[in-house]
Amino acid sequence: MLRVKAGDLDRMGLLFERHYRALYGFLFHMTYQREASEDMVQTVFYKMLRYRNSFTGDGEFVAWMYQIARNVIKDNVKKNKPGNTYYDAGEIADRLPGGTSADEGFEKKQANAGLHRAMAKLSDDNREILTLSRFQELKYQEIGQILGISEGAVKVRAFRAMQELKDIYAKMER
């Protein structure tokens, strides 16, 4: 990224290649909107180009990218009317390409959809911290950088979020 900042804009192409899938995953889990998430990927990268001079180089590029992504999500939520924003997460999961063999595939898909629904019921903060730690597989120290809190605080919040998710999921299964 420092090379992009120095004027080598083509480097951004490589950064895009490397990170856009993960970024899309994050945006999708936070909004459950497929197409809007694709547009937001674009917006995040546009902002990074536009504001490349504000990248200090302390800390990771990835943390900076997610910080910008969080702001883009906030802007996007403001633009959308409430109630219009979320699709049913389970429904989306149902439509995902599932397992190949019939029985195993079906069972796996059910669990998949159930968990997507449970995730959707979490508060945004809790879903965010679990998405970053579990799906994006970021370290707690990196998540702390993104959220602007200490590593210890991330640990505590991630644990509480996991607890809540487990309770919601258990209730749904019953």
Binding site: F28, E38, V41, Y169
Partner: peptide, 26 residues
């Protein structure tokens, strides 16, 4: 158990459009 299940969850993949649009934007 829930943690392990999460590891098997699938997320939709972005379409090929994203790349083309990004290149045009760049």
């Amino acid at each position: 158990q829930v943690w392990d299940l999460m590891g098997e969850m699938e997320t939709p993949q972005p379409s090929a459009n994203v790349q083309v649009k990004f290149n045009a934007m760049l």
